[in-house]
C-alpha cells in the first residue's frame, strides 16, 4: 500500500492504495464518488470518463497511483457552486440527452472537455469526439443536440431523424 494525495473537485484528498487500485475504484470506493460509472471495464465505453489535470481520461484505464498529485474532476464537480446544473448538464436535460442515464456522466465529462478546447464544435467534431463514449440506448442524436445547444449554437435537425 502506498499513500496518494490529489485534488478531487477542488478538495484535497488522500488515501492508501495498492499498486493495482484503479483511479475509478479510488473515486467510487474510497471517496464514495459513485457518479463516475464503470460500464465495460475494458477501456471501450467511456462511462468512467473523468478529467485529470484538465484532460479527459478513462478512469478504469489509469491507476490511482498515476493520479498522485493531480487535479481530478468528476461528474460531482460539474454542477455550479450553488448546486444548479451546469450549462452542459442543463442542455442534456433540455434536449433529452439521456435515456437510461448510465453513460451520462462520461458523456458530460467528454462534452465539457471538448467545449473547453473547442467552444463551437461542428456536429461532425462532436460525433468524432464521442468516439470513445458508448450509449447503449443509442441515444446519440439527442446527446449531440445537447452539446450543440450547450455551445450556444443552433440545434440542427440531425440527420437520420
Amino acid at each position: 500500500m502506498s499513500k496518494i494525495s490529489m485534488t478531487v473537485n477542488g478538495k484535497s484528498v488522500s488515501g492508501e492504495v495498492e499498486g493495482r487500485t484503479l483511479l475509478v475504484e479510488f473515486l467510487r470506493e474510497d471517496l464514495k464518488l459513485t457518479g463516475t460509472h464503470v460500464g465495460c471495464d475494458t477501456s471501450q465505453c467511456g462511462a468512467c470518463t473523468v478529467h485529470v489535470d484538465g484532460k479527459q481520461v478513462k478512469s478504469c484505464t489509469m491507476f490511482a497511483a498515476e493520479a498522485d498529485g493531480a487535479e481530478v474532476k468528476t461528474i460531482e464537480g460539474e454542477a455550479n457552486a450553488d448546486g444548479s446544473l451546469s450549462v452542459v448538464q442543463q442542455a442534456f436535460q433540455d434536449y433529452h440527452g439521456l435515456q437510461c442515464g448510465f453513460c451520462t456522466p462520461g458523456m458530460v465529462m467528454a462534452a465539457t472537455a471538448l467545449l473547453g478546447k473547442n467552444p463551437k464544435p461542428t456536429e461532425l467534431e462532436i460525433r468524432e469526439h464521442l468516439e470513445g463514449n458508448i450509449c447503449r440506448c443509442t441515444g446519440y442524436h439527442n446527446i449531440v443536440k445537447a452539446i450543440m445547444a450547450a455551445s450556444g449554437q443552433d440545434v440542427p435537425a440531425v440527420a437520420a431523424e
Binding site: 477501456s43 479527459q56 481520461v57 478513462k58 484505464t61 489509469m62 471538448l114 468516439e131 470513445g132 463514449n133
Partner: peptide, 8 residues
C-alpha cells in the same frame, strides 16, 4: 483510439 486514449 479516441480522445481519452490519446490523452494517455
Amino acid at each position: 483510439g479516441d480522445p481519452a486514449v490519446r490523452n494517455r
